[in-house]
Amino acid sequence: MTPVRARMPHAPGGMGGPPGEGSALEGVRLALELEVPTDVRLIGRIVQLVSRQVRELEFPANVCSLNVPVALSEALSNAMLRGNEDDPAKLVRIRVLVDPTGLVLEISDEGGGFDLDECTQDPTTPANVTREDGRGLFLMRRLMDRVERYTESHGLGRNVVRLTIKRPPLAGSP
């Protein structure tokens, strides 16, 4: 199996927002960066790794078992199969930022990017519900609070999808 290279943890620049007073996680922040070759067989392991970190930082159970795994799996799948055209020589980078206010996942590939609104279909219409494809972006947008796509202005100008999910106040928060 192709290796996954990980770097963690360190205090990131931060997502802003005050930590919950009196919480066991007061001030706790996590940054995790992964760089992986394009290989869809790696997606399960990457999702497992990220979900485990998120679970330890007291996100609600369904966020750890549904929202994050499915949304991240979709973003990785898109990055590898569409952005990187399933080329194993191309890399996908994953950046995970967690602080008391929420979680941000940034998935970048070497593709030219896409228009998020134009590419998102509604798979629930009678015409689409029997289709085999077209549910990925829809699920990402339904399962996360915010989904954005942009092109990095520096370096190679990688295509980035950013997924954000807020969390309820931590126990002990005012």
Partner: peptide, 17 residues
Amino acid sequence: TGYIDSSGLGVLVSLSK
């Protein structure tokens, strides 16, 4: 089963057909 992504859902639709 843990979770299913859109590709997994697509396979179920395909198999059903």
